[in-house]
Simulated scan of single mutants.
Amino acid sequence: MPEPAGPRGEVAALVAVQSSLAGRPGVLSTARGMSHFGEHSIGWVIVALLGALLNERRRRQWLLAAAGTFAAHAAAVVVKRIVRRKRPHDPAVAVNVGTPSALSFPSAHATSTTAAAILMGRAIGVPLTPVLVPPMALSRLVLGVHYPSDVVFGVALGAGVARLALWLDRKSR
């Protein structure tokens, strides 16, 4: 009798990420911390509101970052409810954190983090996307709560919402 085939496609990629990273010291606790920080975009919105409070000269940019980040999260929730893709459930995938819903596509964490990175980077004049987005995106895979395509689409959606927020801001001046 032939042996059952191992995970394939996105599940195989997810298992590969988990097997190479999840057992390293501090990785799971850091990924869980990032998950809690990014839940419903709350951590990023708080950072942006603090920026608005502390940096009067760039207050408009910080408020745009808060609004754009929250809008990105909302956009991800709308897409989740339309697509209704279930989170990974293969026995080879370890789920290492609780989630507020069973819906996976797209990753709202990747979406809001990307929007926050673009918009807050603009507020401080430093590109934050390469520093903030890859760790959050990878954390979603390490935690076993998203397929790679959920994360990739979330990054693209977050970038699109950030660009739309910037465009709307320019039009309103």
Rank of each mutant, 00 (worst) to 15 (best):
P2V: 12
A5D: 04
G6I: 08
G9F: 00
G9T: 04
G9K: 01
E10I: 00
E10W: 00
E10S: 07
V11K: 00
A12K: 05
A13G: 14
L14Y: 07
Q18W: 13
Q18K: 08
Q18E: 03
Q18N: 02
S19D: 15
L21E: 05
G23P: 09
G23K: 01
R24S: 08
G26S: 01
G26A: 00
V27M: 00
L28K: 08
S29P: 00
S29Q: 09
A31C: 10
R32C: 02
M34Q: 14
H36A: 13
F37L: 07
S41G: 05
S41E: 14
G43D: 06
A48V: 10
A48G: 07
A48L: 04
L49K: 07
G51M: 03
G51K: 12
G51W: 05
L53M: 05
L53N: 02
L54C: 06
N55W: 03
R57M: 02
R58A: 10
R58N: 14
R58K: 08
R60Q: 14
W62R: 12
L63S: 13
L63Y: 13
L64F: 02
L64Q: 12
A66G: 14
A66M: 12
A67G: 09
G68T: 05
T69F: 10
F70E: 14
F70R: 15
A71D: 14
V77W: 01
V77K: 07
V77Q: 14
V79K: 01
V79G: 13
V79W: 00
V83L: 01
R85Q: 14
R87H: 03
R87N: 06
R87E: 09
R87I: 13
R87C: 04
D90N: 12
P91N: 02
P91F: 07
A92G: 12
V95K: 14
V95Y: 03
N96S: 09
T99R: 13
T99G: 01
L103A: 11
L103K: 06
S104Y: 10
S104E: 09
S104V: 01
F105M: 09
F105T: 13
P106N: 07
P106E: 02
S107W: 15
S107A: 15
A108M: 09
T111H: 01
T111E: 00
T111W: 00
S112G: 06
T113Y: 03
T113A: 15
A115I: 04
A117H: 10
M120P: 07
R122Y: 01
I124Y: 06
P127V: 02
P127K: 04
T129W: 10
P130C: 11
V131H: 07
L132M: 15
V133E: 15
V133Q: 15
P134F: 06
M136E: 15
A137E: 15
S139A: 15
S139G: 14
L141P: 00
V145A: 04
V145L: 13
Y147I: 10
P148E: 10
V155L: 03
A156S: 04
L157T: 00
G158N: 13
G160R: 11
V161T: 10
V161W: 04
R163L: 06
L164C: 02
A165H: 10
L166P: 05
R170W: 03
K171D: 04
S172L: 08
R173K: 04
